[in-house]
């Protein structure tokens, strides 16, 4: 394992102080870093009362949030999760190394220079799994994704309980084409309790579960205009495993040895 650098150590304040270890690692994939999410309890989902409040506030019937309740506390073992979603740069390296198909929006087989550090899009779950296998990583489960985004205290958004319009890439103007993706490090205010970045907005992220043929997609995306769909507990997105939409991306995870 590579030597830990100073920036690998994060101490962030949430409702308490969470010490999180970011581990520099060198994989076949890239120089991207992984963050250790310590084992222990976490809160998943939303209470029915809270769901009712949020739904009322946004004009939805509460049943549109029913995938989130009942809220439950679960124990998860330690795991590593990528600080950022996989970028075009990283996915390009994977394609070069393996011959995996280039993305449709690339030009001449290369990602556009302006998108090189944006999350890769147009990936289906098979693409994501192929990348993970090559990088000796895996997709996070929904529970892992949610813990990394919400911390042990189950906050509403990665950065806290109040929505911050500048903390993620979303579509506040409700534009037809939306704002498109942003570089994965464009929203430092969106840092989660463990230092994981860009979990909400930008691209909806494939998860390892449920089993085929449909996978969960978490975090909303650059097209999302409704704040309730940017909550880290939101579960109204999934996709056919073979669907590669222009708002689908992914990040990697790994077991702790």
């Amino acid at each position: 394992m590579a030597e830990l650098s100073r920036r690998d150590w994060l101490t962030l304040t949430g409702t308490g102080v969470v010490g999180a270890l970011a581990v520099s690692r060198s994989t076949a994939a890239e120089e991207g870093d992984m963050i250790l999410i310590p084992g222990g309890p976490c809160v998943l989902g939303t209470t029915e009362d809270e769901a009712a409040r949020v739904a009322r506030e946004h004009g939805y019937h509460v049943s549109w949030l029913s995938g989130e309740y009942p809220q439950r506390q679960v124990e998860l073992p330690s795991f590593l999760i990528a600080r950022y979603p996989v970028t075009n740069r990283q996915f390009h390296a994977f394609c070069q190394a393996t011959g995996h198909s280039r993305r449709g929006y690339w030009r001449g087989g290369e990602p556009p220079a302006g998108l090189i550090d944006h999350p890769v899009t147009g990936v289906n779950r098979a693409d994501a799994l192929a990348y993970c296998a090559w990088a000796r990583l895996r997709l996070p489960t929904e529970a892992e994704w949610e813990k990394a985004a919400r911390g042990p205290d189950g906050r509403t958004f990665p950065w806290g309980d109040e929505f911050d319009p500048d903390a993620c890439q979303w579509n506040p103007e409700k534009l037809a084409g939306g704002p498109g993706t942003a570089p994965v490090d464009a929203h430092p205010r969106g840092a989660g309790p463990y230092g994981v970045m860009d979990m909400v907005g930008n691209v909806a992220e494939w998860c390892a579960d449920p089993p085929p043929p449909h996978g969960a997609l978490r975090g909303g995306c650059w097209m999302t205009s409704e704040r309730l769909n940017l909550r880290a507990a939101a579960r109204n997105m999934n996709g056919f495993d073979n669907n590669a939409a222009n708002f689908y991306g992914f990040r990697c995870a790994k077991d702790v040895d």
């Binding site: 004009g59 939805y60 019937h61 049943s63 029913s66 449920p210 969960a216």
Partner: peptide, 27 residues
């Protein structure tokens, strides 16, 4: 996000997000 989806029931126009739905493995 279904915020501009509309339907009708009992002769009234309704936003689809106001109508109950059921969560399934295909959310």
């Amino acid at each position: 996000e279904c915020v501009r989806h509309w339907c009708g029931s009992g002769g009234e126009l309704r936003r689809l997000i106001e109508v109950p739905r059921r969560f399934s493995p295909r959310a």
